[in-house]
């Protein structure tokens, strides 16, 4: 008989089959998560001997009274708000255009996708040159438009926009590929029917394509927000290992990195990690609740 009622024995056998994967999951995922949660409560702690001297909420108290933490939180939020909407609009627009051309579509897809598969370090080197205040391509271009040279990487006012622009550019290709996949799942006959129903191109997009694409838009949004909250390496390499001029691009993960690797405050680092975790969790839950109401899964 193929279908058995689950007994204690069959359940154990089932777990036995799952054991190798469960073991890996436990050791590399579940345990570190729980451990870092625990670590955030260790106020006196020796990381190397794993000796716990004191447990308490002290780390969180220190964290919330640290102006740098609030700066990092503010910067991260500005970064996410700056990157996600523009990135989604741009990549959706480009995906729509690519979806309509046959000629060279593959070529353009590759071009847009290249930044995604290229190492962030290499990309940042190129962008450091583009952003250079004297010889940079961007300032050269802006000069033609009559805009004075901007010190992108050394002016605290412009460091965040510079980071946002580079991140948008880097993530574009991946989002475009996702949107193209979503678009190719939409039956072309809807466009024809809409045309007969009297919808123009914009109305077809507004009332037909966009709603049908919403599950993919949701996915891209959630993924962009999460990766936005986790931004670190772009900052690290673009500003040469510093959190930008005047800490202008100090993000939460960068803050965590500083606490952990340069100040050896492991408890504080873990606490900021926990805060980041809950931040992402809250945003994702909000996203999810929104999607249940407004997204139609065919």
């Amino acid at each position: 008989m193929m279908i058995k009622k689950p007994t204690l024995k069959s359940t154990l056998i089932g777990f036995l089959y799952l054991a190798p994967m469960l073991l890996i999951l436990l050791v590399f995922n579940i345990f570190p998560i729980l451990d870092s949660f625990a670590m955030s409560f260790f106020t006196k702690y020796n990381f190397y001997t794993n000796q716990i001297g004191q447990i308490g909420l002290g780390n969180f108290k220190t964290l919330f009274s640290d102006p740098n933490f609030w700066l990092a939180l503010k910067n991260t939020l500005i970064f996410v708000i700056g990157v996600v909407p523009i990135s989604i609009c741009l990549s959706l627009g480009i995906a729509l255009l690519l979806n309509h051309i046959r000629f060279l579509a593959g070529f353009f897809k590759t071009v847009y996708f290249l930044p995604f598969v290229t190492s962030t370090v290499a990309i940042s080197l190129v962008w450091q040159w583009i952003y250079n205040d004297q010889y940079g391509l961007l300032n050269l271009f802006l000069r033609h438009l009559g805009i004075g040279p901007i010190n992108w990487l050394n002016d605290p006012k412009w460091a965040m926009p510079a980071l946002i622009i580079m991140t948008i550019w880097k993530g574009l290709g991946f989002n475009i590929i996702l949107f193209l996949a979503g678009l190719s799942n939409i039956d072309q006959r809807y466009e024809r029917v809409a045309q007969i129903d009297g919808a123009n191109k914009w109305q077809t997009f507004r009332y037909i394509i966009f709603p049908l694409l919403s599950p993919m838009t949701f996915l891209v949004t959630v993924m962009s927000i999460i990766s936005g909250f986790k931004v670190f390496d772009e900052v690290f390499v673009l500003f040469g290992g510093s959190p930008g001029p005047g800490q202008a691009t100090l993000t939460l993960v960068f803050y965590l990195y500083q606490k952990f690797y340069t100040e050896w405050q492991y408890g504080l680092a873990a606490a900021s990690g926990v805060v980041l975790f809950f931040l992402i969790l809250i945003v994702t839950v909000i996203n999810y609740l929104y999607s249940r109401k407004h997204i139609y899964y065919v």
Partner: peptide, 14 residues
């Protein structure tokens, strides 16, 4: 101003 009905109905699913 034609009205058209397709084999697979093509109703807007959302």
């Amino acid at each position: 101003r034609v009205g058209m009905v397709f084999q697979n109905y093509a109703l807007y699913p959302h």
